[in-house]
Design a protein around this nucleic acid. Structure first.
Length: 549
RNA sequence: GGACGGGUAGCUCAGCUGGAUAGAGCGUUGGCCUCCGAAGCCAAAGGUCGCGGGUUCGAAUCCCGCCUCGUCUACCA
């Protein structure tokens, strides 16, 4: 907010300088206003003089002198400014400006941090998209939280967001699932059963089989078709997945079944269109998509010689359906195992005449699970994985959300189960929530004592910690915006931890509600502003903001 | 072999559209509750930012090469 004002002032100064012939316009838009890393360098620093001097082959300090002279005239915004080092200009903002943020933030309330930069653009976020073969594992958990928090941040910044889950309930995986269920069913009836070699060994299969026994008794024992078993398993697992997602606070607008692409003829349409454009040919009895036309190394099969499509074809058809539903921005959240399919799908999108730049793929790396310092191998089939539900049982929804949001998508992350269970109290989510609860507690006690926040006394906020807190508060809206537009929820987490940390420090050093009622009133207004920011930040990404804990 | 992503403190990770003395949490060590919540604060120790070149006033950040780890590289999804 304040930084924006300063940047605008510099831009005006730059333009004026060009007009007066002080420097050329070569450096336009290349200088930056940043937060200095160290104490004693003012509130902001700009490399203005360095960049302008570099572009014009002049001495940085000469330029800096000119700039400083002019900035010093702007007393309502700037308290001090000086030249430092090779030509940096360090600027100290007038404390009045910082204090002015308190009424601004309180006035904005729930709107503080939120914005309309999205301009109502329609965005689809596709995520999770796990086939219904078993409960969601920790790996899916990362994806679920990542996708949902990206969606929430986009909503907070004025986007019209649609959440979609893409799944496939046909194919070999599902047949094996059905056969596994049948085997368990027969076992429960005490009948001989042959469990598939690569069957799903999870305990949940037994639960499903048990439900079938309760429902049908042994009526299905001679049933040769796998269908009733598969249907039951799929139905059961889907309910389980939805329940897990709901627990995490995740609700989808739509579940898109891959199967519908066949029934509606979209698969055939895609092949026909690609063929008419010359991107498809037959070889070895299979149908190939000419991805080499898009700079790829080799062409890819889209319909096998058996007549069945490969996974690429429905993926492309699915993306075509997304485009046909008229979204402005398509975001795909995928695990890194999908890396290879992304270029094929984008080539397909382009071949069909759609703009691949409207698609952003967020690839997240895998979650490595460790227990007692050792890596745990996971497989849905062997059922030796940890489920999202188990995780939530152990550490709670907020901790799970916070933990997965903390890390940027493209870093492999380690999930230490020993730590998660044994030391869940150390989870940094409590650091932020505690800051909020502590602040609420003070506000409650102030009310009991009859002390109220009073904006009229903000001039008393003179402590460095108070101005520091205001400074950080001023960066909050920009943090939300960049977290949203860069699809990087971890940025909001770091912003929250920064705010919480400064508040904890301030609390330990200064008393908010003390003997001086006027000073107390001023400080209460500051922490009310802080409360607005913490509340908005936490809830914006689906975390709770507990008033007591 | 190729594509993509990692390699930053003992551990887990930020910083990466170039900026001044590289950060946080955990762990370690030492302090702080007769006073608004100690789930907190303060301080200390801890670093060849994988390695080597290059670009420039300036590189953890950009470029090139190399090492290393992960995922992928199917007429499996």
């Amino acid at each position: 907010m304040i930084r924006g004002r300063l940047k605008a002032a510099l831009d005006a100064l730059f333009a004026q300088g060009v007009e007066e012939g002080l420097w050329s316009s070569a450096a336009a838009g290349r200088y930056a206003v940043e937060l200095p890393k160290h104490e004693g360098m003012g509130d902001f620093a700009t490399n203005f003089a360095l960049v302008v001097a570099g572009a014009d082959k002049k001495k940085p300090r000469d330029i800096a002198t000119l700039v400083v002279e002019r900035l010093r005239g702007q007393t309502e915004l700037i308290a001090r400014c000086e030249i430092a080092g090779p030509g940096f200009i360090n600027i100290t903002i007038s404390p009045e400006v910082w204090r002015g943020l308190v009424p601004t933030i309180l006035g904005a309330g729930p709107a503080f941090g939120r914005s309309q930069v999205g301009g109502g653009r329609r965005v689809m976020v596709e995520f999770v998209s796990a086939n219904p073969t078993g409960p969601l594992s920790v790996g899916h958990g990362r994806q679920a939280i990542l996708g949902d928090s990206i969606a929430r941040l986009l909503e907070a910044t004025g986007h019209d967001v649609y959440r979609e889950y893409y799944f496939n309930d046909a194919g070999r995986q599902m047949r094996v699932l059905g056969e596994s269920t049948r085997a368990r069913y027969l076992e429960l009836l005490g009948l001989p059963a042959q469990f598939p070699e690569d069957g799903y060994q999870g305990e949940y299969i037994v639960d499903i089989a048990r439900a079938l026994v309760e429902e049908h008794g042994d009526a299905l024992k001679d049933h040769q078709e796998v269908e009733p078993f598969k249907a039951k398993a799929q139905d059961y697992i889907f309910k389980d997945i939805s329940a897990t997602l709901a627990r995490l606070g995740i609700v989808f607008d739509n579940y898109f079944n891959e199967h519908s692409l066949y029934e509606d003829g979209h698969i055939d349409d895609v092949v026909a269109i690609l063929r008419s454009k010359g991107y498809v040919y037959e070889k070895d009895n299979a149908v190939w998509f000419k991805t080499t036309a898009f700079g790829h190394e080799q062409d890819r099969v889209i319909i096998k010689s058996s007549g069945e499509p490969t996974y690429r074809l429905p993926d492309i058809a699915y993306h075509r359906e997304k485009f046909r539903r008229d979204f402005d921005w398509l975001i795909d959240i995928f695990g890194s195992d999908h890396i290879a399919t992304v270029p094929d799908v984008l080539a397909g999108v382009k071949a069909l005449g759609y703009d691949p730049d409207k698609v952003t793929v967020v690839l997240h790396q895998f979650v490595t699970l460790t227990r007692d310092g050792k890596t745990v191998k996971m497989s849905t089939r062997k059922a030796n994985f940890v489920t999202v539900d188990e995780l939530v049982d152990e550490v709670g929804v907020d901790a799970v959300r916070f933990f997965f949001m903390m890390r940027k998508a493209d870093s492999q992350m380690e999930f230490d189960l020993t730590l998660a269970t044994r030391e869940s109290q150390d989870n940094p989510v409590y650091y932020v929530q505690y800051a909020y609860a502590r602040l609420c507690s003070i506000l409650r006690q102030a009310t009991e004592k009859g002390v109220q926040a009073d904006l009229g006394h903000c001039a008393l906020l003179t402590e460095p910690e108070e101005l520091g807190l205001l400074k950080t508060l001023s960066t909050f809206p920009a943090a939300v915006e960049s977290a949203a537009l860069e699809l990087a929820p971890h940025k909001i987490i770091f912003a929250l931890m920064e705010l919480a940390g400064q508040w904890h420090s301030y609390y330990n050093k200064h008393k908010v509600v003390g003997d001086d009622r006027v000073l107390s009133a001023a400080r209460l207004s500051l922490i009310e502003a802080l409360k607005v920011a913490l509340y908005n930040g936490l809830t914006m990404v689906g975390l709770s903001a507990p008033e007591r804990m």
